[in-house]
Design a protein around this nucleic acid. Structure first.
Length: 260
DNA sequence: ATGACATTTGCAAAATGA
């Protein structure tokens, strides 16, 4: 069973690339972020024609998350991250698919820091940690996949100097990510590739793609019951090099069993 | 670097992003 996460940066603008990738990569489950689409304008018919059932939590102009499942309909278990009824951002949706619980995450960027946006990022992260503990307590396979907007270590970014004041590389952001790891969540990419440069994002600006100046910010965190089944993980880097590509590349993990 | 580049909204230029 292949589970992928892909920040599409606008699902309407990216639809041709998304459909091509679904057809070639054939993930069983795809978590999408940055739909930049309201619920009403989500391209449900095109996704279904590609063979995927879907649930989504849209928002006009920015944010927005979805979960796609090949040949079946995800059963929604959570819409919006619990813990703050005043949070209006569409950044979390969760579903049961084929015995697995899957969360699609779009964690706040947090720039500029310090400031209210960074405070929101850290508060959102705390809510995610709280929710992830409830999920872990169920002792079932869980995959929390998405754009965490965190480079966990200096090996996950192209230039320490360039990112020194960026919210994605701050000690507070990294500490929150690390606390999930210490809680028992497995970073699928690093479980398979313990060291070395692996990037999932390349900025549109300053020739970042051409000079491979990337960041690793899209992650799949596995509960112990999911980690026990991990057989492979990777990044579909070539997708970033296509015409009118997203600035993120799809990132994936394969678990044994299920729809393997 | 108030920059770059891209998308959305809405129809110009601002908001947002990482």
């Amino acid at each position: 069973m292949k589970i992928a996460t892909f920040n599409v940066n606008g699902i309407k603008a990216r639809l041709p690339r998304l459909l091509e990738w679904l057809d070639s990569a054939r993930p069983d489950i795809a978590c999408l972020q940055e739909l930049k689409s309201s619920d009403e304008t989500f391209p449900e018919a095109e996704i279904r024609a590609a063979g995927y059932g879907a649930i989504w939590h849209g928002q006009k102009g920015f944010n927005g998350v979805a979960i796609l499942a090949r040949g079946r309909d995800p059963v929604e278990t959570q819409r919006g991250l619990p813990g703050d009824p005043d949070d209006t951002h569409s950044r979390y949706i969760e579903a049961a698919v084929d015995g697995l619980i899957v969360g699609s995450i779009y964690l706040p960027n947090g720039n500029p820091q310090p400031g209210p946006k960074f405070d929101y990022k850290l508060a959102w992260f705390e809510r995610l940690i709280e929710h992830s503990r409830r999920l872990r307590a169920a002792e079932v396979p869980v995959v929390l996949a998405g754009d965490y907007n965190v480079c966990p270590t200096d090996e996950d970014l192209f230039s320490r100097r360039a990112m020194a004041s960026d919210a994605l590389a701050q000690p507070e952001s990294r500490a929150a990510f690390r606390r999930m790891i210490f809680d028992g969540w497995t970073d699928a990419i690093r479980a398979r590739m313990p060291s070395g440069r692996v990037y999932t994002f390349w900025d549109y600006q300053a020739g970042c793609w051409a000079r491979d100046a990337g960041l690793r910010i899209d992650h799949l965190l596995l509960s112990p019951q999911a980690a026990d089944r991990l057989v492979d993980a990777g990044v579909d880097k070539a997708v970033r090099g296509e015409e009118r590509a997203s600035d993120h590349a799809p990132t994936w993990a394969v678990l044994s069993g299920g729809a393997a």
